[in-house]
Design a protein around this nucleic acid. Sequence first.
DNA 1: CGCGAGCTTGATGCCGATCAATGCATGTGG
DNA 2: CCACATGCATTGATCGGCATCAAGCTCGCG
Lengths: 268, 268
Amino acid sequence: MLNPKSSPTAPPANECAGAQIIQRMNPNRAIHIEPFKVACSSCNLRELCLPVGLSQPDLERLDRLVATRRNVNRGDTLFRAGDSFQSLYAVRTGFFKTCVSAEDGRDQVTGFQMAGELLGLDGISNDRHACDAVALEDSQVCVIPYNQLESLSREFNDLQHQFHKIMSREIVRDHGVMLLLGSMRAEERLAAFLLNLTQRLQARGFSASSLVLRMTREEIGSYLGLKLETVSRTFSKFQEEGLLEVKQRQIRIIDQTGLQRLVNSAAC
Amino acid sequence: MLNPKSSPTAPPANECAGAQIIQRMNPNRAIHIEPFKVACSSCNLRELCLPVGLSQPDLERLDRLVATRRNVNRGDTLFRAGDSFQSLYAVRTGFFKTCVSAEDGRDQVTGFQMAGELLGLDGISNDRHACDAVALEDSQVCVIPYNQLESLSREFNDLQHQFHKIMSREIVRDHGVMLLLGSMRAEERLAAFLLNLTQRLQARGFSASSLVLRMTREEIGSYLGLKLETVSRTFSKFQEEGLLEVKQRQIRIIDQTGLQRLVNSAAC
DNA sequence: CGCGAGCTTGATGCCGATCAATGCATGTGG
DNA sequence: CCACATGCATTGATCGGCATCAAGCTCGCG
């Protein structure tokens, strides 16, 4: 619905971050879902993704590894908990959420992934995925066959090291979320969430002050350990206080330092 | 410096889990802190630690890598957030907590580590540790120089794969904690925590029904996103309900399935 | 013995959950 | 094109779980 019908040849909705990335980086490609081959070595995301720091020859080998791409429509799952694990996925365009669920049906959004970020690391531990990955808008991922990545990273130190860094960074990120869930109050959580989002968007060339949320209030709430009503109320509160301008999913950040202060102003 | 006093020949505290492990597995060694060299290939923890699944020749190479050991007294830190990252650590005996802290001083216990578990994975991302690791009892760790581990894992597929599995498992574990923090109530959290602890202790040959907590109520609370009073009250409640017997840090589990039911009995 | 760290227990209050109604945008079928 | 359904968001009223504040208790230790 945000991204209406989207007949497979239709361009992605124009207001979506994914589309913006495509357009900003290569306008021609917005039109075709599977344009022509885009190698890691010439990918616009290479400074954010697996290829960081790789030399030219390494990159060319990586190109051969990451041969296939996959489109995932809004609302579809890239993988589900329990699926056998074969590959990692790098988000090329679009936006995902990952969520784990308890037996009783409760579930928890564990992260939101945007262009250049890796999906599927949870699958290595068991040869089965441990969470669901769901596209929040029409998306495209690069498929990275895991056993090939392992063998290639035996040859190329830089690739190996970069891969380890990515896994480690995920662990550090998760610890940050645990801190948030364990000790912050609703306002602090939402402020931290917004700052984190804008920071990542900024690293991708977007405005630091205006963004379109790809997820519902309920998904934000699940990620932050809050109910959707609380998320909504907190947005309204921020607006009243002049920190934000909120129009549905369209957010404009008016007072960034005000948000920052909220996050840091700890256990007062 | 971490292991200053404690004349090197003093036995570790007798009631501590670490000591119990040593005694159970090799009574002779409880006496000396640095007995004689214990190689991975002959370590009693090899089925829980990095060597899982390694063949004999691989193991021998790993032995040479993990040459040094380090004692950490109760209350001392193995590393601190910001310390430069050189090595991973495998807990040989004892018990640790890891915690992250926000600028404002708030902090959050992100995990408890017992024998056979790895510490320091957070450091890879930045070449600096991102959390503190503190010994909750007199402990000993094996020092695993990280760059040597990287190069060795380029030679040995099994080692590489095992290492990746360990990192991935940490990610999956963290997601489980996020689920707990984001959507469970106090009783469910504590029940899940106790079941997790006993399960890990059981994998190390201990009783499934009786354990000694190595951490304070406050540390449990920090880990579970609760205040220490709530932890204490919940322990008392469990005792009244006949689920546990609680004597300070001595816990006996009377009704394991009752605890299990609490954890699963979701969003009621 | 007395001190202090950690634990327990009670009284009270607040933050966020819950329940419920309304609003708003989009899509659908008559 | 309008009436209606649907999904999502907002807002209000009330409630409850956990935090907070405040005593006392227990146990190990100097």
